[in-house]
């Protein structure tokens, strides 16, 4: 067993490296990913080892990155696109929504799009405008795309490899504020499947659902709640589209209460879809409506106001209190 203590950024780096070793068709492309190693250094050293044909420093154009990735995929390659920041994916959204997402269906399955679109997403790092967005709902709303978000180095290491190996396009959301958090990663383990959610803490009173950057927050909330004698079950959603709600349904049937946490604005977000499904599947077990703790319905605020905007431990506990109050 080879175990290493890795930050999430380093875990992604090693995962990418292993995917490139395993499959010569894997090509990384993005702005500043080669020589510089990416603005978060996730691709550090890869161009040096795999060359400029496999780690491509692209011109500054996101539609170009994803559009040429489509062409490379049609030619049998497995492109992994890095979008430098969440707020800069939008020039590529035309290619993602009208092309990447639809090519399999419109070709009746004759053509596949094994493209991965990596996006550092979310806030909490004190950044300027357009560097703290949570655009997952746009992609989750688009049939033909799969959308995942990792919350820890272990899932990052395996998840990126699984996303690259997957036959369908995957939008791979990396919580940038957790890039520097460390964990032990067993490099020989048998990984959990990518498109599965997972209970990460057992509890009886309220089920708290989170993904990406908010899993750590939910776990902190659970620890704080435990001190006050309240037991929270925390589920890391991991896959946002397709949703894997079976473990959630089991959990909510026991607890009768559920809080969904995400950084993204609450209205028309992932939480709304989850609440609807849980209402359908757990209606008779619910003791309280499914509640949401998320960003307010405003543009992401200037950095010095982001703490008040982002759901934090207190906001999660507040939602838990409200759920218990029904």
């Amino acid at each position: 067993m080879t175990t290493e203590t890795l930050t999430m950024g380093k875990a992604l780096n090693l995962g990418l490296r292993r995917a490139m070793d395993d499959d010569p068709k894997v090509v990384l492309m993005g702005e500043d990913i080669g020589r510089l190693g990416g603005v978060f250094r996730v691709t550090d050293g890869l161009q040096k080892d795999f060359g400029e044909a496999r780690v491509v420093d692209t011109p500054l154009a996101e539609a170009g990155i994803v559009g040429t990735a489509v062409g490379l995929a049609l030619r049998g390659y497995r492109p992994v696109c890095e979008i430098q920041f969440d707020g800069f994916v939008f020039p590529a959204v035309n290619q993602i929504v009208t092309q990447v997402a639809k090519i399999s269906a419109r070709s009746q399955g004759r053509m596949r799009m094994p493209v991965v679109i990596r996006i550092p997403f979310g806030g909490g790092i004190g950044a300027v405008e357009h560097h703290s967005e949570s655009p997952e709902a746009y992609f989750a709303h688009t049939p033909g795309l799969k959308v995942v978000s990792v919350s820890n180095p272990v899932d990052a290491y395996w998840g990126i490899q699984q996303a690259i190996a997957a036959p369908d396009p995957v939008v791979f959301l990396e919580p940038k504020r957790r890039y520097w958090e460390k964990a032990e990663v067993d490099l020989d383990a048998i990984p959990e499947p990518l498109f599965r959610s997972r209970v990460v803490r057992r509890g009886d009173d309220v089920t708290v659902l989170a993904y990406g950057p908010m899993v750590a927050t939910a776990l902190q909330a659970a620890a704080a709640a435990a001190e006050e004698g309240r037991s929270l079950e925390v589920v890391d959603l991991r896959t946002l589209s397709p949703l894997d709600l079976d473990p959630v349904v089991d959990s909510v049937r026991r607890t009768g209460r559920c809080v969904v946490v995400h950084e993204a604005q609450v209205s028309h977000g992932l939480g709304a879809e989850i609440a609807a499904r849980l209402t359908e599947q757990c209606f008779h077990s619910l003791e309280a409506p499914v509640l949401r703790a998320g960003g307010y319905d405003v543009p992401y605020p200037p950095a010095r106001n982001e703490e008040e905007y982002l759901p934090d431990l207190d906001r999660v506990l507040d939602a838990v209190d409200r759920a218990m109050g029904f």
């Binding site: 307010y296 319905d297 405003v298 543009p299 605020p301 200037p302 010095r304 106001n305 008040e308 905007y309």
Partner: peptide
């Protein structure tokens, strides 16, 4: 100083 956080709602 930061602006009062409530101002994030005001000019949307």
């Amino acid at each position: 100083q930061p602006r009062p956080a409530v101002t994030m709602f005001d000019a949307v």
